[in-house]
Design a protein around this nucleic acid. Structure first.
Lengths: 300, 300
DNA sequence: CGATCCGATATCTCGCAGGTATGGAATGAT
DNA sequence: ATCATTCCATACCTGCGAGATATCGGATCG
């Protein structure tokens, strides 16, 4: 059976051109080295050296085998490093999901990109899904981490780390009287409006937080249409079906016919950005979580 | 020190998911296998398996290492085949030279190409040189084989194998009275002409053969210009400096202003095609020689 | 709670890598 | 020629470590 020892010896003899000298370099004696070379030649079924009076010289078969042996030895020598990097999560596969509204937050896109550049060995797979789908895929192991806007119910035991609290903005149709108030509107100012909201689905989310904040502001909001995804609420606002409250970063969407105005006096209403991960996730996932949490701490 | 044994055992355990079952498959007992796996984990510096009550499962580091181990083992397993093919001359490097006139012989180009396709593992290096350079490079080991037109002197001990005897043709300037004789001209018809000939250099070549044939035809040729390379003689013919005698395959050159007419009654004059190789050349060279000689035998 | 399964640990042994001694072929100096 | 030198090959011995045997220990399950 061929062993790496044979290949190491072969390379040494090939480089020295002398069995005796190679043996000295390897820290062994010449006879055992001769025997190992013979064993290797028997194993590959062809002589690898021409014996000359002044040493040995590779045959053509020897040339070919030495070349292959070098790459094999290099790969074997790289195994500890490979294992170390895999164990430290610096390589592997990492599936990250996010809700449509998180996709517009500059923090999310910037940090995902930064992680990908810092660890090129990690193959990033990105997925935009609804909150419910994200939670399901995390539990099912199809995702390693997900950016959410609101904590799902106590569903599958996921780690939820709050990252940032983002101010909210009022989304108003272009012609709305309050749309000119670029310095901001108070939540109370929207008391008489019809609200278009992101559909409630998995657990208490932004929906409930908005209702609660309105109550705190002293009115009960009239809810009209509900939209399945955050960006579609803005389309409904543009269509004049009401006003909405969205995270301020949704400004990036730049929907025609919709003006986003900062929400002053929000009565505690803010859009949280959360990271959900599985407990004892993959090493890459742990490393990702660490990087994201650190970046979030820097951000505030 | 990591050995292939460790990798073989690792792959077996990874595939079985059981140390005990893998040991049975490997034909050894479980405790030594456990120890080898531990040794490997120590060598790579990371645990490769998670031990569960029902067996073992690869860690992420284990996944990465197993993948690398598989390719290493495959490469090692391919060594005997690799050595065998290298020894049989089915891979390696083969430098083939040819004189400019041989380059126009369809046999040469066809057989070189056929050899390259039959043995893709052999890297072919082609070189067009003068006969003297070819002989020198063969002797110096820079060439493995060369197609020549005439045997060099008893120079370096090269093996010379005659391949084909090609008829000669008379190269006449376009306006020459004999140029219209498409059925051929006899050597005697050229008795009064001035001859443009390929320069004599290394040993007796085509030059001497032509002189001898003319004498056999009953005249002594008047030699005007001499050219260093076969194709340039045709240029001199086109320039009206005389007529010439060339191998019939030079028709492929299609030089403007030159007509090649078959040489009837050549008095034994013919253009030989020879293969020169070094005795005890590389395995690839031997294989090449064998293929060329076989092809030449089929040809006649 | 015993039965069972499976990896870990402890100890022994024997095969083989490696050591020692010497042979033998080719080259070169005298 | 002959002897010295240089290297690889061969013969035989030794000691380390891969592998065998026996047993332990923890987890799961009827």
């Amino acid at each position: 059976m061929i062993e790496l020892r044979h290949l190491r010896y072969l390379v040494a003899v090939a480089e020295e051109g002398h069995v005796t000298r190679a043996a000295a370099r390897l820290g062994i004696q010449q006879p055992p080295l001769t025997r190992q070379i013979h064993d290797l030649e028997a194993a590959v079924g062809a002589p690898l050296f021409d014996r000359t009076p002044r040493g040995v010289r590779l045959t053509e078969a020897g040339e070919a085998v030495v070349e292959a042996a070098r790459t094999i030895l290099d790969q074997a020598a790289a195994l500890p490093d490979l294992a170390g990097r895999a164990a430290r999560g610096e390589r592997g596969r990492l599936a990250v999901g996010y809700t449509s509204s998180a996709a517009f937050h500059p923090f999310v896109v910037r940090e995902i990109r930064a992680f990908g550049q810092a660890f090129p060995g990690v193959r990033l797979v990105l997925e935009e899904e609804s909150t419910a789908e994200l939670v399901r895929d995390l539990a099912g192991g199809r995702l390693d981490a997900a950016f959410l806007r609101a904590p799902p119910g106590e569903a599958a035991d996921l780690r939820i780390d709050p990252l940032l609290e983002e101010p909210m903005a009022a989304a108003l149709p272009a012609g709305h009287p309050l749309a000119a108030r670029t310095e901001g509107v108070a939540l109370e100012d929207l008391a008489g409006e019809t609200f278009v909201l992101y559909r409630r689905l998995a657990g208490p989310g932004l929906y409930d937080a908005i209702i609660a904040a309105c109550h705190a502001a002293g009115f009960s909001p009239m809810v009209g249409q509900e939209a399945p995804r955050m960006p579609s609420t803005l389309s409904l606002v543009a269509a004049g079906l009401g006003v909405s409250l969205t995270p301020a970063s949704m400004r990036r969407l730049n929907v025609e016919g919709v003006t986003l105005v900062p929400l002053t006096r929000a009565h505690g209403l803010a859009a949280p950005l959360l990271l959900a991960t599985r407990p004892q996730g993959s090493a890459a996932a742990e490393r990702f979580r660490g990087a994201i949490l650190a970046a979030a701490r820097l951000e505030t």
